[in-house]
């Protein structure tokens, strides 16, 4: 795990911190959070800039390679962050046997939605690239 580089060998030997993959989860949540700051601001600013614009203008924007790359990065980072965040919320509040099912459904949905969003983005972008 990437996390072990940030944990001291002494801490591990003395059984300080998470015994399992807790640090990796915590660290990945932070990494995705940091990445989502510029990606989220870019997304919000883009939506505002396209206020009132029509379908053609929107498709034209989505067809730009920079938009496609940033949108795919946003989708990956966002749904990764959502999967980690919802996992913590479920683990904190659900203590019955439904917990494992909720976790499974949440993670499957996050993967499915991320892939669905990426394919939709690529379909728009490739449509624009092949048309011109």
């Amino acid at each position: 795990m990437v996390g072990y580089r940030f944990r001291s060998p002494l801490g591990l030997a003395m059984s300080l911190g998470s015994a399992k993959s807790g640090f990796g989860h915590w660290w990945t949540e932070r990494v995705t959070a940091v990445a989502l700051i510029p990606l989220g601001v870019w997304f919000a600013a883009s939506l505002i800039a396209h206020s009132g614009s029509n379908y053609e203008a929107f498709i034209g924007w989505m067809g730009s390679p920079i938009t496609a790359v940033l949108m795919i990065l946003l989708l990956i980072t966002l749904f990764w962050h959502i999967a980690l965040g919802l996992q913590v919320a479920i683990e904190d509040y659900v203590h019955s046997g439904t917990k494992i099912w909720l976790l499974l459904i949440t993670h499957f949905l996050c993967f499915a939605l991320a892939v669905g969003g990426i394919v939709a983005t690529l379909r728009i972008a490739i449509g624009v690239w092949t048309a011109t």
Partner: peptide, 18 residues
């Protein structure tokens, strides 16, 4: 949690556009 629901709307939006 609410923004997770918004992310679903984001994907619906992209799929609708596609």
């Amino acid at each position: 949690v609410f923004l997770s629901a918004c992310a679903v709307v984001l994907v619906v939006w992209l799929i609708a556009a596609a």
